[in-house]
Amino acid sequence: MPRKPVAVLVTLLLALAGAGLCVLAGTPLPWMMGPLLATACASVAGAPTAGWRPLGNAGQWIIGTALGLYFTPQVTALVGSLWWAIGLAIAWALGLGWFFGGWLHRVNAAHMPEVAAPKMRATSYFAGAIGGASEMTLLAERAHARTDLVAASHSLRLLLVTVTIPFAMQFSGLHGLDLNPPVLRAVHGPGLALLALATAAGAWLMHRLGRANPWFMGPLLAAMGLTMGGISLSGIPSWLSNAAQLLIAVGLGVRFSRAFLYAAPRWMASVVLGTLGMLAVSAGFAWLLAQTTGLPLATLILGTSPGGIAEMAITAKVLQLGVPVVTAFQVCRLVAVLVLVAPLYRWLYPDASDAETG
Rank of each mutant, 00 (worst) to 15 (best):
P181H: 00
A259M: 11
P306S: 07
V150S: 09
T27S: 11
F285R: 02
G173D: 03
T72R: 04
I90G: 05
W84C: 14
P190R: 02
L139T: 05
T304E: 10
V79D: 13
V107R: 08
P306Q: 06
L184M: 14
P30A: 04
W31V: 13
R185N: 11
A152P: 06
L192Y: 03
V8S: 03
V8C: 11
L302C: 15
V323K: 01
V150D: 05
A127V: 13
D148S: 13
E356I: 15
P28K: 07
G294A: 14
V161E: 06
L9W: 02
L29E: 05
L344Q: 12
L289I: 02
G229K: 12
T227F: 02
E141M: 07
T147G: 10
A264V: 04
V115M: 15
L55S: 10
L295W: 02
L16K: 00
V75R: 02
M1D: 10
P237W: 08
L29K: 05
G358R: 06
L197K: 03
R346F: 03
W267I: 11
A269P: 10
R53N: 12
A38M: 06
M278D: 02
V337I: 15
M278R: 00
R211G: 11
K317P: 06
A193S: 08
T327Q: 00
D178C: 01
F260L: 14
A129E: 08
P113H: 01
I236G: 00
L261R: 05
N108S: 09
L348A: 11
G235W: 01
L233D: 08
L195W: 10
G128I: 01
A298N: 08
G210M: 14
A19R: 04
C332Y: 02
L273W: 04
L338R: 01
W204I: 09
A200K: 00
P48Y: 07
K119E: 15
E356V: 15
R211K: 12
A244P: 13
P182M: 00
P35D: 04
P30F: 04
G251A: 09
V23T: 12
A269R: 14
I62V: 15
A186L: 11
V79Y: 05
T72V: 12
L288H: 02
T49K: 11
A66G: 05
T147I: 12
A310N: 10
A186P: 06
G307Y: 01
R333S: 03
A193D: 04
L273S: 07
L139I: 14
A77H: 07
L149N: 10
G294E: 13
G20A: 14
G191L: 01
A110Y: 00
L104N: 08
P54E: 06
G173M: 03
G322M: 07
G68M: 07
L194T: 00
M33H: 03
L233Y: 02
S43T: 09
W61N: 09
R185G: 15
P113F: 08
L55P: 09
G97V: 08
S270T: 15
A116P: 08
T315D: 10
G230C: 07
V318E: 05
L94C: 10
A244S: 13
A263T: 12
W61E: 09
T164P: 13
V254D: 06
R121K: 09
G307Q: 00
Q170G: 13
A203C: 04
F216W: 04
V107T: 07
A116C: 09
A269S: 14
M33F: 08
L36I: 07
L37S: 12
W287N: 00
G51C: 15
R3I: 05
